[in-house]
Amino acid sequence: MKMNYLLKNRHKKNYSRKIIFIIGLFILGALAFSLFDNLLIKIISPLWRAENGFSRGLGRSADFFRSRQALMRENGTLKERLSSLELEVSELSLKKIELANLESLLGRTVYKESIAAGVLTHPPQSPYDLVVVDAGAHDGITVGARVTLPEGPLLGEVSEVFPTFSKVKLFSTSGEKTDAVLERHQVPVQLEGMGAGNFKIIVPRETEVVLGDRVLSSSLGSSLVAVVEDIKVTSTDPFKEILAKSPANIFSIRYVSVIK
């Protein structure tokens, strides 16, 4: 008996050309984007400024028509202002102690010259906890310059500088490690960024830490970096995990100070 076999209609496809195209495009893209990064951000930054202005303007006009909403918003703004002032007060009290300490250190002076900068983008627009500010090399900003809130708390460091704008890497960037000091007993610790303004600190179990304790930067003119929010202790672990949060709401920052 004669047997007829159907021909296989699924022949092997050759993807090598497509893969070469994709890899080639990736390499070319890397080269092109590395050359034009400054230009790209320069082109996009007016759109960010317009968006910031538009969203604020829209908010104001909506308040006019919705009085109840307006009151709620005003309440929110006042609360924000209150927390900002509280931060300022706590920062000032810290400065007082700092000043007393500094008086004992002969020959050392802390002189901070800072420049105000507007925030163009902040998380959650950026997936990397990076902030783009509208001050750059023309304003005397350099890589590594420290960035604070106008009220005082430390936010991060300048990671890239362009002529008219800069990128600021927040200390809370995931995996970022920063030396700091637990204020209560002046215990040196390492803050590990967890993203979205959160930090993790590992300390020996015996270290005394209380909710609300402040974590300061380890530099001479120490500033507030984070506040202890949660403490996790397990009975078998010789260490305890402290979860701290940046005192600033990084999702709504508008202005920062860059210390030159």
């Binding site: 984007f33 590395s34 790209l40 950026s126 997936p127 990076l130 783009v132 990128k167 890497k169």
Partner: peptide
């Protein structure tokens, strides 16, 4: 690349 340029540590 565009996302990395705008919001990342650059390319």
């Amino acid at each position: 690349f565009f996302i990395d340029i705008l919001y990342g540590r650059g390319v």
